[in-house]
């Protein structure tokens, strides 16, 4: 019975993503039509005359009414057609698919690292107000949100690569000496472990270390801040007072009463953190020449390759929506109060 209710909630939540995705498609469509000047003239190239521009307009369906154009646009998307990237000549979809694992590996590793550090830090800071942990937490939180990721990345490079020589040069996912492992997940660290190649694993980890730390420093702040705030609030709540008045052990009060409740706002904040991390990812990829979709987009921007940029924006949005969906599903499962009609 309980399961029935829960799966219904999950289903309802999945359905809610539909209008969001529709909204994303509309915005992306509008962005393709907002090209400076005449898109047909742009796609026809510099050399085109009136007639060939007209031809291109027809071919692209730009002479159709807007709603029709939108239908065509969505139809193309459904077939995986995002256009061709000018810089490489390959289709945008192929390029993105090839580069996505690199970005994902970086982003997920950074998220994991920041969660592992930020949540315990926030909890400790909240349970010991005005101790050194609390001050450290407050400092990290304020400094963390003030640091431009690209600047942190460069500063780390200067110290750990130029001065100390501990880090490898910022040249992508692997040193030239190594060959990429056989693709299973697309994550070099995991694939190299699957292949049993220890040296390769260490090499890919070494390449990842600085970019991951750079990203994690940035995402640490909002998570630690929210954890601390939420813990302070639950620790001051009436139900924690009841639990203490009933003589429950401090462990139980802290974990089952305070922390589990504090987790709810933290999980909600993660949505915002994803937004930050996916944006910061672009900058970090540029700094470390990381061959992900972010640096692909930056290169495309330089040569005004609009199809590539728009494909990038769309895929990032879809990635973000799926991450948010995941978060919401977790939330639905841990909070009994989420009602069905919501």
């Amino acid at each position: 019975m309980a399961l029935g209710v829960k799966s219904r909630r999950v289903l309802a939540r999945l359905l809610q993503a539909v209008p969001t995705i529709f909204g994303i498609l509309v915005v992306c469509f509008l962005l393709t039509r907002a090209l400076p000047g005449d898109p047909a003239a742009y796609f026809a190239g510099d050399m085109a005359d009136e007639a060939s521009i007209e031809q291109v307009r027809k071919n692209l369906g730009l002479d159709q009414p807007m709603p029709m154009q939108f239908v065509t646009y969505v139809g193309d998307l459904l077939q995986g057609d995002l256009g061709v990237a000018i810089s490489t000549g390959q289709t945008v979809a192929q390029e993105l698919a090839k580069r996505l694992p690199a970005s994902l590996e970086l982003t997920l590793a950074a998220l994991l690292l920041s969660l592992v550090i930020a949540i315990p830090l926030g909890v400790l800071a909240a349970t010991r107000p005005n101790s050194w942990v609390d001050h450290l937490c407050r400092f990290l939180v304020t400094a963390g949100v003030s640091l431009p990721t690209f600047f942190t990345g460069l500063a780390l490079l200067y110290v750990f690569y130029y001065l100390l020589g501990w880090a490898p040069p910022p040249m992508g996912r692997l040193d030239m000496m190594f060959l990429a492992p056989e693709t299973v997940t697309g994550f070099y660290t995991i694939d190299s472990l699957i292949a049993g190649d220890w040296a390769l694993f260490k090499a890919s980890l070494a390449q990842m270390a600085l970019p991951v730390i750079t990203l994690a420093l940035f995402t640490l702040a909002p998570i630690a801040r929210m954890t601390r705030a939420a813990m302070l609030q639950t620790l001051a709540s009436d139900y924690v007072r009841t639990a203490r008045a009933a003589g429950l052990s401090s462990r139980r009060v802290l974990i089952d009463y305070a922390f589990r409740n504090a987790l709810l706002p933290v999980v909600t904040t993660l949505g915002m953190v994803f937004s930050f991390v996916l944006g910061a990812n672009v900058l970090v990829e540029k700094v470390f020449a990381w061959p992900g979709i972010g640096s692909f987009a930056v290169e495309a921007l330089v040569v005004s390759d609009y199809a590539a940029v728009q494909g990038f924006v769309l895929s990032m949005a879809l990635l973000f929506v799926s991450l948010n969906l995941l978060i919401d599903l977790i939330y639905t499962l841990i909070d009994p109060r989420v009602s069905e009609e919501e």
Binding site: S237, R241, A243, A245, S250, D256
Partner: peptide, 22 residues
């Protein structure tokens, strides 16, 4: 802590807030 709940107990106003909501 051993005394609270076992020897002396307490109930509060605003009962809904006094219970762990989840």
């Amino acid at each position: 802590r051993d005394i609270r709940g076992r020897e002396i107990s307490m109930i509060f106003q605003n009962p809904r807030a006094a219970l762990n909501p989840i």
